[in-house]
Write a protein that binds this DNA or RNA. Sequence first.
RNA 1: GCGGAAGUGGUGAAAUGGCAAACACACUAGCCUUAGGAGCUAGCGCCGAAAGGCUUGCGGGUUCAAGUCCCGCCUUCCGCACCA
Length: 854
Amino acid sequence: MAEEKEFRYDPALIEPKWQERWAADPALYAAEPAASGKPKYYVLEMLPYPSGQLHMGHVRNYSIGDALARHMWMRGYNVLHPMGWDAFGLPAENAALKNNTPPREWTLNNIAAMKRQMQRLGLGYDWATEVTTCLPDYYRWNQWFFLRMYEKGLVYRKKSKVNWCPDCATVLANEQVIDGRCWRHEDTIVEQRDLEQWFFRITAYADELLDDLDKLEGWPEKVRTMQRNWIGRSEGTEVDFFLEEQEAVNSEQGAGNREQGTKGQRIRVFTTRVDTIFGATSVQLAPQHALVASFTAADAVLKAQVDELIEQQKKAREAGDLGAIEKHGVATGRFALNPYNGERVPIWVANYILMDYGTGAIMSVPGHDERDFEFATKYGIEIRRVIAPAQPGGEDAALPFTTEDGVLVNSGEYDGLTCTEAEKRLQAVAEREGFGKATVTFRLKDWGVSRQRYWGTPIPMIHCERDGLVQVPDEQLPVLLPPQIEITQQGGSPLGRVAEFVHVTCPKCGGPARRETDTMDTFVDSSWYFYRYTDAKNAAQPFDPARVGYWFPIDQYIGGVEHAILHLIYSRFWTKVMRDLGLIKNDEPVRRLFTQGMVIKDGAKMSKSKGNVVSPDDMVARYGADATRMYALFAAPPDRDLDWQEDGVAGVSRFLGRVWRLVTKYAPVANMGRSGWSQSRKEGATGLSLKLLRKLHQTTAKITLEFEGRWHFNTCVAAIMELVNEVQAVDARLAAGEVEPPVLHELLSSLVLLLAIFAPYLAAELWEELGEAGSVLRAPWPVSDPELAKEDELEIPVQINGKLVTVVRVAAGAAAKDIEAAALADAKVQLRTAGKTVAKIIVVPGRAANLVVK
RNA sequence: GCGGAAGUGGUGAAAUGGCAAACACACUAGCCUUAGGAGCUAGCGCCGAAAGGCUUGCGGGUUCAAGUCCCGCCUUCCGCACCA
């Protein structure tokens, strides 16, 4: 019975139909030029890595962004809502090894598959601006930026200890090492290797990256805090302790000795508390400190002890709890001289000193530092008080006394100064005498971008025996990845094995030269992709500055908090570099950032190993895209974790079915009232009509408000459900014609408009059912009329001594005294106040009344 | 250890100092039959026959009024963690 079957909501019929129509109309989601005169709105979701399959985290991320984009379109904004592919990276090479498929082919196939999934979900992207980072028309600009940065001294090459992941067979940035393990291989311990590497000088922007965090008021405080911690700015002083001369040891290797002093070797330490220097009772070196090597060269026993300390650090690093390492140390038998008073203090090597922070050496002040105190107590090193609390009688304050609110004691001529005054004076002396200076240390390190991989952007440099490092000339860009390459597991750069890639003519001298064979970290790609969206086809420059000037900064960026430091700090850096290159005007790329919660199932993050992965394709096949997306928004507020329960998706699907039946049932009647309803609606509407219109306008107001502030879209969906429930509850009266066609029309068409941002397919179908010609997507967002939304009677809770007793009905605008009278007249109130004194009555008009009774 | 977020029915959650549990899920009972992953009606925090009482992790406080604000504690999750 085909006719009957029609009366069932069937997303499998509706959705593909509209998907086809939308695909045939690219202008639907296209951003307009600046000249459109509309206010602009740039909404962006983080681009995915094309693994081949969308997961529920993506579905949630894109459902949030799509609802926002649709809302802004309907509000009359010129919206840029793009999508692209973070398409370089190691998995493509692994897949090549496994399936013998070239990385390019594998990646492009995955992109096609995921794009189909996105289109099936009905996500409204402007595909004309699509960016695919592994294609030459994109990565040539990575190379172009690399060269501009090289010219500005922001790119350099140095041999350094690098993080090496044996599984990736490549180098990792510090940011990609988590608790001593690879960020992609949880079980793989990262090794340290010595390699020539390319670096971006992100530290040149450390101060600005830190300071500008204060401007990012639209960012979660959590993310800003994480970035602050990561940058780790610390003000202090570098001071040289003089190494006591000792004939027995040759002193030619003075690597700890940055400024060759006239009096022999020095040990430079970094401290934030130079005011405590008269309490320094030892100098502690990191086991890897260059000076240590010179001590152990002629002392096998000491060397063994130091190796043991290195081993302890390595183990702690692998265990991921460097902070919990038990402190061990060994005295070297050597001594250093305090530059301020010539005091002779022992030099130790300790496992709690890190070579990669500060200078790899400290002055140990056990009286005023917890860690030094613990160490000194264990090894019997002198603990001396040099700071007393500012208050009189403070000599009794227990050591270690670590606060800076104090005055110096036992510090010679500096006695009596406050810590702050002393620091300034001591720094001035150090600078004058040339044994130290005020300095700022960062935890942030320069960004190592070299990768010994194939599937990445080739670094556009040439090594010439005669001319040294030579830039690839701009007109030779892009340096293309050779298409045919054998991927193997052997170490070293795969590009190095492609002779026709490596052998090149030097652009300067024309002689034979070698191409650089490293490729760039894929975080380079994602550092500026969102600029390219504004001008994705530009073949002459990375983008037209005028377009960027119009669209930037991004109004709303949406993604997972896992990118809080990596991607989001690199992007900020790149923006500042582009600004200093004169390409853009904005200091920051993103005005507002939203970090969504994770999608979990059965209390755990979805993962193959736990077997709790829910496939978006399955959900769409069973319940449709609308129900899947709407559930992703309904089950929890967007910032919280979302527990995926399939029964909940089914529930949303049933709800959409109710909407479908309701609208299709009454559309013919509603359509009769399409025109005659604009002025004096309130006067025209009475009884049931007024009641339903009121609920409609309240719902519209509520949803509009959520988009403007709190973003609790789950309550928006709930509000639409309430509205539908209320209409459905009076189905019999509607059928009896109790509601005038113009009211019915406003009711149903507004319902469809509200639904359009969450369930676009169904909304499009029902919009057509209601006889509307244009796209529901471009229809104006309904406006809530405050007069219509207003209740004319209110229920006021009445409390006695703070306990709810009853509820009284009063007119909406009732004055305090009328509410008071109504409350006192209430039977339950009279019963409870009989024989007692009403001492006080508090009335908050429109809200509550409370009687204080004794 | 430091910093942040959270803790409410059987479950997901709602309540922006003013009726705790909206909206859903699950469940129970009934109806319907086009037997569907459908629809409709009613019930559903706890104790109680009812009247009524109790209830937002625990303990204090502010307030006429606290899930919401303040103080202390507990638990869970996240970030940082010998950073000198």
